[in-house]
């Protein structure tokens, strides 16, 4: 109900303007449109001094008594602008700065470079393999796929564009984007990872990284922000899984022409002893090659 009321109100306001125009153009013609309010006004004026010219609310004329409250509120409002006021003094305050719409940074760069500016509009950024740009209104399946890909990439790489120094996907940002794509495709290492560096540096870098990550998480938690799930730390490889060279014995340690077996190796080979391991469920522990009993 309120919604419809609001609507009516608005339409009434629109009507009132045109009505008012009509009225001012032909003051005698409104005698036929007398309504209750008008009658009251006439009556009042006959007894007291004439009221100031109040814009009447013609909504009441059209909609009848169900809209009377609206009309009243409007007539109250319209009373503010009185006809008797003098001419309004207009002061134009031109603020030069506020209207200076800046050129987009990309365009500004192109325009203010030393080369003559291109008159052709900048081509669409989505390109196919041959470097041919895809029109924005191309609706074919392949075009849609390419647009999808471009959108995915934009979403994944948009944080690179936030840097103030280089807001484009060129230069350093291009390499960063390439790195991201490579890692998304399954690359184990980043192209930015430096392979050789002093241990102390590496340790420092790693500790700084983890510290930064830890602060980020802590601050997010304190502020009630939910972050992505922390990546599980990879488990330390056990010695048994370590990579042995080709031709090396699969058990023990071969040094100086001697195969040395540790106690653990031996026990692994022997397997669990029946007598001792009475409470076990017969489960074979270890990964030795010992015969199963």
């Amino acid at each position: 109900m309120t919604a419809t009321l609001g609507k009516r109100k608005r339409s009434a306001a629109v009507v009132s303007k045109s009505e008012e125009d009509q009225r001012s153009s032909s003051p005698g013609s409104d005698s036929s449109l007398l309504d209750a309010q008008e009658i009251f006004r006439r009556h009042f004026e006959s007894q007291f001094k004439p009221l100031p010219v109040v814009q009447k609310a013609p909504a009441a004329i059209e909609d009848g008594p169900d809209n009377l409250s609206d009309a009243n509120s409007e007539s109250e409002w319209d009373g503010i602008s009185e006809a008797g006021e003098g001419a309004v003094e207009v002061i134009e305050h031109s603020d030069a700065q506020s209207h200076m719409a800046a050129m987009p940074k990309e365009e500004l760069k192109a325009f203010m470079s030393s080369k003559p500016p291109k008159s052709t509009p900048t081509p669409s950024l989505i390109r196919d393999k041959a470097g041919i740009s895809i029109a924005d209104d191309d609706d074919s399946e392949t075009a849609n796929l390419k647009k999808d890909l471009a959108l995915q990439r934009l979403l994944a790489e948009s944080h690179l564009l936030e840097s103030a120094s280089n807001p484009t996907l060129t230069g350093k940002n291009r390499h960063k984007a390439t790195d991201l794509r490579m890692q998304a495709l399954g690359s184990k290492t980043s192209i930015f990872k430096q392979e050789k560096m002093p241990m102390s540096h590496r340790k420092g870098i790693i500790s700084k990284q983890s510290e930064r990550e830890e602060t980020r998480r802590r601050e997010a938690r304190e502020n009630g922000i939910i972050l992505e799930r922390a990546k599980m730390k990879p488990k330390k490889n056990s010695i048994g899984q370590r990579d042995r060279g080709v031709g090396a014995p699969s058990v023990g340690k071969f040094t100086g022409g001697t195969l040395t077996l540790s106690k653990k190796d031996i026990s692994d080979i022997e397997g669990p002893q029946r007598g001792v391991n009475s409470r076990g469920g017969g489960r074979v522990r270890g990964r030795g090659r010992g015969k199963r009993p």
Binding site: F111, S114, K115, P116, P117, S119
Partner: peptide, 10 residues
């Protein structure tokens, strides 16, 4: 010269 004349050469 740069923005109005040089583009004519293209």
């Amino acid at each position: 010269v740069r923005t109005a004349i040089l583009p004519l050469y293209e």
